[in-house]
Amino acid sequence: MQFDSWQAFLSMGGYALYVWLSFGVTFIAMLAIAWGSARQHTQLMQQVLKERARRARIRQARQNEPVQTAGLDAK
């Protein structure tokens, strides 16, 4: 251990502002990108099922309106 006390460790030989600012911002930046990427994954997975449900609904709707489809096909 290079420092005699917690106090000395936190003051970083008078460079506390610069050292802790650097480490703090780095930590926040890394946490933000990791957390953001993980969140994106969950959202995408939900979107996959939503898209599937939407496709199923469209298919259903087409099947339920055979008359109109037939009319359009005839033209």
Binding site: M1, Q2, M12, G13, G14, Y15, Y18, V19, S22, T26
Partner: peptide, 19 residues
């Protein structure tokens, strides 16, 4: 941050090197 020796010119500010 805590165990590496101090730099003889830059003191503890050199610890920023680790990131």
């Amino acid at each position: 941050l805590a165990f590496a020796p101090q730099d003889y010119q830059q003191g503890d500010s050199f610890r920023i090197i680790y990131i």
